[in-house]
């Protein structure tokens, strides 16, 4: 059995807002019956204020799918549609005091149902922006589709390449065989053969032997260089990263495009941080720029 938080159990055993809202004027339906998770979200939105007055869910799915749906309806009731559009799957997972990595897709489904419902209210057609595959790397929650896309986009050849680009396989290493299978498959599609001893695609940047500590200007320049080298991988996913500020050893970045609100954003930031530390040869903390406001208020106080 999964190690669900008490909050997940609470929302599963006593779900809030179950059932369809009677006079709903927005509906979002997402999920996949073959995967065993599907959700219909119905909203009653006040036409003048665009405030969500009522929200109801109907879910076919496991304990965490039902809990994610339930907590989603609680989060968005009383919000305006613009506010609700900013709710991320991480917000849902946080409200549930965390989900097992295999179950994060339940929170993603919640966010997508919400976006689909908002699009439905506004007369737009919501389009799914990502495909989800079988979870390969349990340490860093990387799925097969993401690995395949990275292998295609960056001409990756070895497990080491995949780990460098996605982090998948960088933890307990139990997924290396699965990653090799993906490499074999994609390389076969490209008419190439998988060779476990192939040279790495991008020679890893050797850690500079820092004789003297970096000045802030040197540090910023180096950080920019590293971000520049990582940018193609992010852009292949429809995202981007922007350096906002460097204070001491903390780099504040904005994740933009598809990275914004993506469940992998936290993972990506961790990956950037690791690469920065390798190259700069010193401890660097990468933090979303949204955290800067907190920092300022502390300084003022």
């Amino acid at each position: 059995m999964w190690d669900y938080s008490d909050k997940v159990k609470e929302h599963f055993f006593n779900p809030k807002n179950a059932g369809a809202v009677v006079d709903a004027n927005a509906t979002g339906e997402v999920g996949s019956i073959s995967c065993g998770d599907a959700l219909r979200l119905t909203l009653k939105v006040d036409d003048d204020s665009e405030i969500i007055l009522e929200a109801g869910f109907q879910t076919f799915g496991c304990g965490s799918a039902i809990a994610s749906s339930s907590v989603l309806t609680e989060i968005i009731k009383g919000m305006t549609l613009d506010e609700a559009a900013k709710v991320t799957n991480q917000d849902i997972a946080d409200q549930l005091e965390g989900l097992p990595p295999e179950k994060m897709h339940c929170s993603v489904m919640g966010r997508e149902a919400l976006q689909a419902a908002i699009a439905n209210y506004r007369g737009e057609v919501w389009k799914d922006d990502h495909e989800e595959g079988a979870l390969i790397c349990k340490c860093f929650a990387i799925d097969a589709v993401m690995i395949e896309e990275m292998v295609w986009a960056n001409k990756l050849r070895t497990v080491e390449d995949v780990t460098n680009f996605t982090k998948a396989g960088g933890g307990c290493a139990s997924c290396h065989e699965d990653i090799e299978a993906i490499l074999e498959k994609v390389l076969a599609e490209k008419g190439e053969k998988f060779d476990p001893t192939a040279a790495p695609v991008v020679a890893p940047v050797k850690a500079a032997v820092a004789k003297a500590p970096l000045t802030n200007l040197q540090r910023i320049k180096k950080i920019e260089q590293v971000l520049e080298s990582l940018r193609p991988a992010l852009m292949a996913d429809g995202g981007d990263v922007e350096l906002v500020e460097v204070i001491g050893n903390t780099a504040y970045v904005n994740m933009t495009g598809a990275c914004n609100g993506c469940q992998m954003a936290a993972m990506t930031i961790a990956g950037i941080q690791q690469r920065l530390m390798e190259v700069l040869g010193e401890f660097i903390k990468v933090v979303p720029a949204t955290e800067m406001s907190k920092l300022v208020s502390i300084e003022v106080a």
Binding site: P15, A18, G19, E29, V30, G31, S32, I33, A38, L39, R40, F57, Q58, T59, F60, I66, V108, M109, E112, A116, W126, K127, D128, E131, E132
Partner: peptide, 25 residues
């Protein structure tokens, strides 16, 4: 079943596969 999008009242919705056809996510 009360929570299920395929169920309504005392039985499954008519043509369940058509009545609820979510966007693949």
């Amino acid at each position: 079943r009360k929570l299920s999008p395929y169920w309504s009242g005392d039985g499954p919705v008519a043509n369940p596969e058509q009545a609820f056809a979510p966007t693949y996510s």
